[in-house]
Simulated assay, not measured.
Amino acid sequence: MVDTSTAKQLVQAIIDNLEQPVPGRRPVHTIGVGVKGEFVASDVACTYCIAEHFNGKPVRVSVRFSNGLGGVNQHDGWSDVRGMATRFHISGERGSDLIATTLGEFFVRNVDDFFEFSKIAKREKYERRPWWRKVWDLLQLKIPPRNPYPDETKNVDEGALRYANRHRFAQLGIFQVGLIGAPESYARASYHAVHTFWVTAPDGVRRPVRFSWQPVAGVRNTDPKAVPRDRYLFDELRDRLQRWPARFMLMMTIGEEGDALDDPTKPWPGTRIRVVMGTLTLLKVSEDQEADGERISFNPNRLAPGIEVSNDPILEARLGAYEVSREMRGGCPFKWR
């Protein structure tokens, strides 16, 4: 486990790069909405993993959808990474968490990479580029930077791109961030838990896997050419769930020899076997957002027996960093047992 001092430095590095930190709230993914739902495993899930929520019985679930940026401004229509943190309320106090985002791969491999990224990818004044510079970019086979949003004064894009130009491993994740767009609904985006986990089957076989949530309604973004809307995602989700439940399929990709098991910046080949592990049904937006969204302390290392962490150093670092963040905002403590 990353020591407490390093975990505090990780959280502080994030806070230092925020335009408007919010005391007592999450430093990033600050804006979020808590939703209640139910998960039912597929018929084959229990043959791959002995974890309790894969035994086929309905499991109560708490989900927090969020925008990636930190601060009090919602910016629903901005191109931004979205989060989906899920708590499976299984027997005992511990539960099991799965934290995923719309980012398919991460952009740093370890803690040292993250500290370097934090120094380079500082927020900078956003200046509108004249048309002739955009043409020049295109002639050089470069994608011109987008114009700033109506109320956007600073951005992190330029610094992140400089980091990507220096580090090939970061390019996939950072380019995805730049092109990710804004979803029409939290229920119409794919969410990926970028880390590798180990699952144990009833016969004792252990397999390296990666999880993702796929929306049954399909993936759909807003029009990137339109003026970004603000503050629509919460109301859209509430209205959607008042009419009909929304569903996600939990997909588990099984790794093979040669796949990166400890590096979240490296994707696995698309030819890998994928198993449908179950269906999540979102039922309603919680009436008590403080209890069912803000005070829940999700942690990707909170896992049911039958699921184990890999040697991914970023996954290891998130345990301590999430706990530091939790202590800063007075969230519910991490329970190992």
Score class of each variant (00 low, 15 high):
Pro202Asp: 04
His192Val: 14
Ser212Met: 08
Arg210Tyr: 12
Val209Thr: 03
Ala193Cys: 14
Arg188Cys: 06
Ala193Ile: 04
Trp198Gly: 01
Ala182Ile: 11
Pro183Ala: 03
Gly204Lys: 00
Val205His: 01
His195Pro: 03
His195Ile: 01
Arg188Met: 13
Trp198Thr: 08
Thr200Ala: 09
Glu184Thr: 14
Val205Pro: 00
Pro183Asp: 04
Gly204Arg: 04
Ser212Lys: 08
Gln214Ala: 15
Gly181Ala: 05
Asp203Pro: 13
Ala201Val: 07
Ser212Phe: 04
Arg188Ser: 02
Tyr191Ala: 04
Arg206Gln: 11
Ala187Gly: 02
Phe211Pro: 07
Gly181Trp: 13
Asp203Lys: 09
Pro183Glu: 00
Thr200Gly: 07
Ala182Pro: 10
Gln214Glu: 15
Tyr186Ile: 03
Arg188Val: 02
Trp198Lys: 11
Pro202Phe: 04
Arg188Ile: 03
Pro215Val: 13
Gly218Asn: 12
Arg210Gly: 10
Arg207Trp: 10
His195Ser: 07
Val209Gly: 01
Tyr186Arg: 02
Ser212Gln: 09
Val194Leu: 07
Glu184Gln: 15
Phe211His: 06
Phe211Tyr: 15
His195Leu: 01
Ala217Asn: 04
Pro202Leu: 06
Trp198Gln: 04
Ala217Arg: 14
Phe211Glu: 02
Arg210Ala: 13
Ser185Ile: 08
Tyr191Asn: 12
Trp213His: 10
Pro208Phe: 11
His192Asp: 05
Trp213Gly: 00
Gln214Arg: 15
Pro215Gly: 13
Gln214Trp: 12
Arg188Asn: 12
Pro183Trp: 01
Tyr191Glu: 04
Val199Trp: 09
Val194Gln: 12
Phe211Cys: 04
Val194Ala: 13
Val194Pro: 03
Arg188Phe: 02
Gly204His: 07
Arg206Trp: 01
Arg206Asp: 00
Gly181Tyr: 07
Ser190Met: 13
Ser185Gln: 04
Glu184Phe: 02
Gly204Cys: 04
Arg207Asp: 05
Arg207Leu: 15
Val216His: 14
Arg207His: 11
Val199Gly: 00
Arg210Trp: 10
Val199Thr: 12
Tyr191Gly: 02
Val205Met: 09
Gly218Phe: 14
Ala201Pro: 07
Ser190Val: 10
Thr200Ile: 05
Ala182Gln: 11
Gly204Trp: 03
Pro215Gln: 06
Arg210Glu: 07
Ala189Val: 11
Trp213Pro: 03
Ala189Trp: 12
Ser212Arg: 14
His192Met: 09
Val199Leu: 08
His195Phe: 15
Pro183Tyr: 01
His192Asn: 11
Gln214Ser: 15
Ala217Gly: 14
Phe197Asp: 07
Phe211Ala: 01
Tyr191Arg: 11
Pro208Val: 06
